[in-house]
């Protein structure tokens, strides 16, 4: 692996990016947390992959394991209590789980960067944003203080923070929520990574600011031809930006599909339920469809399909046998025994 040269002034084309192959591949990943009350199986055999220039949305409710998977990729899980008993995380073909701490640190930040939901608590309140941005260059590239600061201003300009040269010495609390999230994006971009993982990047922001930030992220992704894993629970944001979607439930991927197919014709009852349960802006609906019951407790996941107690289609087989991920079409899968019935309405 050599340092990546970015097509800075040539806007990268999506298709060209795809031909350059898979950036990251997660294979049969399992993550457990060993707690006083027992073993929490947060991730139970997740598979997904992202290529350069591609956006994968990982959709799920709280406790579905979407963030834990991301943290495992970044290598920022606290171990213990967390444990990865099984699985591979391949970055450009190399299994990161087998690497030494030193090797992983070289990838983290430089090749794979992460953006968190809460920008205020991810930034150090007693250091100026310029210092924190510059740290990336001083530590990873050995630049001088002065050169690092100049780079910081450049980055802040790039994420469209007005009057960047004046604001570089300001502290995090002096910025608004949207501006702080831009600083987080700037920090993630600093070393021109190949892949960005954004965990609920706009959940804490107002809609008008959310639109600004998502626009910025999409522009930068196109410009640098980066891979993007977008973790979210918002079906609207996903429809806007994703190329493909993986829907997670109780630590498993229950359905994965290209974005248009998934919205048009979901192949898993959970996905269908989610899509039916959101109110629409453009039409006044009747009573909302509500998925009955609650997400399962991961200490004690129901036997068989984890969704079976809440599923309108559940049969005896669903209570005993875990459904495998059936291939529905090319690049599409559903972990439902009755996917054929589901997809046909």
């Amino acid at each position: 692996m050599t340092t990546i040269s970015k097509p800075a002034d040539v806007p990268a084309q999506r298709d060209q990016g795809k031909s350059s192959g898979t950036l990251l591949e997660v294979r049969d990943l399992h993550v457990e947390f060993h707690t006083r009350d027992g073993v929490v199986k947060a991730v139970n055999g997740v598979n997904y992959s992202v290529s350069a220039g591609e956006t994968l949305a990982v959709l799920g409710e709280s406790g579905s394991g979407k963030s834990v998977t991301a943290q495992a990729i970044m290598g920022i899980l606290d171990m213990p209590p967390a444990k990865i008993p099984q699985g591979e995380i391949l970055f450009r073909g190399q299994d990161m789980l087998k690497m030494s701490g030193e090797q992983r640190r070289k990838i983290r930040g430089a090749k794979i960067a992460m953006i968190f939901q809460d920008a205020l608590s991810s930034l150090n309140p007693v250091l100026s944003v310029g210092y924190q941005l510059g740290e990336m260059f001083r530590v990873h590239q050995g630049l001088s203080k002065k050169a690092a600061k100049a780079k910081s201003v450049e980055l802040m300009d790039r994420v469209k923070i007005p009057a960047a040269s004046k604001r570089v010495d300001d502290y995090p609390h002096q910025f608004s929520g949207g501006m702080r999230q831009r600083i987080m994006i700037a920090m993630a971009l600093a070393l021109e990574p190949d892949l960005i993982i954004a965990d609920e990047p706009t959940t804490a922001l107002d809609v008008t600011v959310q639109a600004q930030v998502m626009d910025l992220l999409a522009d930068l992704q196109r410009e640098f031809n980066m891979g993007l894993i977008l973790i979210t629970h918002d079906l609207g944001v996903v429809a806007d930006v994703a190329d493909k979607i993986a829907v997670m439930y109780a630590g498993r991927i229950v359905e994965h599909a290209p974005v248009h197919e998934l919205y048009k014709n979901p192949a898993h009852p959970y996905t269908r339920g989610l899509l039916d349960s959101i109110p629409r802006l453009d039409q006044k609906g009747q009573e909302l469809y509500a998925i009955k019951g609650l997400p399962p407790n991961l200490l004690n996941t129901p036997p068989g399909c984890a969704f079976n107690p809440r599923c309108p289609k559940a049969q005896d087989v669903c209570r005993t046998e875990v459904p495998p991920l059936h291939t529905v079409a090319d690049g599409r899968g559903s972990a439902c025994h009755f996917w054929e019935e589901t997809i046909n309405g």
């Binding site: 959310q210 600004q212 998502m214 609207g236 806007d240 994703a242 453009d282």
Partner: peptide, 26 residues
């Protein structure tokens, strides 16, 4: 109008057709 146009609609087919009013500033 700006507020409504900024709300993401859960329909990927609407991605191209909808006009977005992106407000500047805070």
């Amino acid at each position: 109008q700006a507020l409504l146009s900024a709300v993401p609609v859960p329909d990927p087919d609407a991605r191209e057709g909808r006009e977005r009013i992106i407000l500047t500033g805070d």
